[in-house]
Design a binder for these strands. Structure first.
Lengths: 338, 338
DNA sequence: TTGAAAGCGCTACCAC
DNA sequence: GTGGTAGCGCTTTCAA
């Protein structure tokens, strides 16, 4: 049986109030009693119930994290970063894979609310912003991570997707490519849209264009869809010499398509990914990609939601924190041979 | 402000007991009152507090999952499987990355206990079995997944690691390899030990031996350590023609080492991984590996811990469920050329 | 059918 | 310093 605060009090011959005091290290107790109580707690293997404490208004020390899919390497990394920082502050993490379905987002949101989590970090897209209404009105802190919600005034921690797209474009342009294509995620994924916007504008600035038929969207099966779409692109009479993929999974698909079609990477085709997941390090050739500072993002998101702005304790936290992406040049990009 | 059961009761002009009844769909209430109460709940956006309900002896509908590292693709997949099955039964999942450190295991275990989770699924190794004592004595259901604890009478769901090792050995032997080496995980990882045992015995049955200097253990940096160890192996005057790696990450390291040394895979070196994570599909050449049925494992572990043996409701659940591994032949293994 | 009331384990306030 | 006690939100008898 689990020991309760009453068991400890009785065994130590004191009141539960006294026990509560030593649990929370507050109030005044004689050293003697404190020692006695501590000893009894030890002996009984007593662990205060977070549930009961939470009911009296204290926190649950639990955070919720919504991601599209925890088995997606990028989000697994985000989750790890969030978990670590949460743990650092004494919080644990409830994981919720939404598969990008609003219906699941809604379910999880009310579930987390019912469980009285102290905050919810959202790293998944939400189509219908109204879904957030219920939890906002219950004043549960919410922070977005790796995904921005257009027009919403939510705290957000993202990488500069637009700039990431620009980095990719500049890199490819610098290598002499002029026939550029893009493998996008599902059209509703905002980060993907931004990356493409940055890419497209940079390409335009170079006096080139990115025709619509050179931009392919994917569904849920990232690798497979990426492969299929890349395959299509590479079969055009005038095929692209470089493909910018909105994430590493899509890039893997592109690499597979190229390999299957006997198109050599990077001499005949350059491929750039996004996210710099572990996958980028294991492909051969190793994938050139745009890195997101996942660890930093996790830290910031957690600190923000817990209102632990270590830095300037008085300044109101920024509503939008945009981190710089970084181009990681590996082996899938090269100057165009002719 | 969050609405409570009192708010609903007052607003509907009934007692909280009545509200409680409609929440739980129990007891007898007139259709009229039920409708009225439901309406008020709706209007107030009322969501019963799981915390408060849990305090009265009901469940928390939360499960804990311990894994070495959620950012490791294999465990991310296990987590997804567990999450899905838990969700299926109405439970949410708290993730705990232990980094294989007993100290963290201990911390997380008491934390989960304090949060009154309804069960803990452990997918990480534990050196000191005594760590489980506290939670076992508090009678919190515990189930092991993907990892077995030697000599412990805990419900366990694992793949047949020994058989997995045999599969790998038979495959390699069948291809004509005689100079076999192994890339192991940390010596304390039991699943790794079993895989090697199966591998070694099968090799022995073929009249060959697996010298100790052909078996290398790794630390925490799987890919890096795998690369370093493989590099060493491949530099021996008499180098192995095939390497069995205890997981895909190590195999990636081996692939990188081979590539760096200009040793062609699979014509000069065959590599077999373990786990069949997404990584195995993205390497080039694609990795031959031993698959674990992660989805099924997640289902079983959750059903076991929740005691929902759909099958035979009366039979006591098996203490040890061993699932069959499967050899997935891709492109990193080939017959030995000479 | 319905509601009053006794907890569940803990915190916090208030008297002593 | 110390302990009594009123809740926190909900479930569950037990009378009415």
């Amino acid at each position: 049986m689990k020991a309760t605060i009453y068991d400890v009090a009785r065994e130590a011959g004191v009141s539960i109030a006294a026990v509560s005091q030593v649990i929370n290290g507050k109030g005044k107790i004689s050293e003697e009693r404190r020692a006695k109580i501590t000893e009894v707690m030890e002996k009984l293997g007593y662990r205060p119930s977070v549930i009961a404490a939470a009911l009296t208004g204290k926190k649950t020390y639990t955070l919720g994290l919504l991601v599209p899919d925890i088995s997606n390497p990028f989000f697994a990394e985000i989750a790890r970063a969030v978990e670590d920082r949460g743990d650092h502050h004494g919080y644990s993490l409830v994981i919720c894979s939404t598969d990008n379905q609003d219906e699941r987002v809604e379910r999880y949101l009310t579930l987390l609310q019912q469980k009285s989590v102290d905050g919810i970090i959202i790293g998944t897209g939400i189509e219908d912003i109204k879904l957030l209404e219920p939890i906002r009105s219950k004043s549960i802190p919410v922070t977005m991570i790796a995904r921005a919600l257009p027009g919403e005034s939510l705290q957000t921690v993202v990488v500069d997707d637009y700039e990431g797209g620009r980095l990719a474009a500049r890199h490819l342009l610098g290598l002499g490519h002029t026939a550029l294509a893009v493998l996008a995620e599902h059209p509703k994924v905002t980060s993907s849209q931004e990356r493409i916007r940055g890419f497209r504008e940079t390409v335009a600035e170079a006096g080139l264009s990115l025709p619509d038929y050179f931009v392919k969207s994917s569904g849920r099966e990232l690798v497979k869809d990426g492969k299929r779409n890349a395959s299509e692109l590479l079969r055009y009479a005038e095929r692209p010499t470089a493909i910018f993929c909105c994430n590493d999974l899509l890039a893997i698909g592109a690499l597979q398509a190229a390999s299957e079609l006997g198109i050599h990477v990077p001499s005949e085709l350059s491929v750039v990914g996004f996210d710099n997941t572990i996958l980028a390090q294991v492909t051969v050739p190793a994938l050139t990609t745009i890195a997101q500072p996942t660890e930093r993002m996790g830290e910031l998101a957690v600190d923000l939601i817990l209102q632990k702005n270590a830095g300037q304790p008085d300044e109101p936290p920024p509503l939008r924190t945009v981190l710089a992406p970084e181009l990681i040049v590996r082996q899938t990009t090269a100057a165009l041979l002719r």
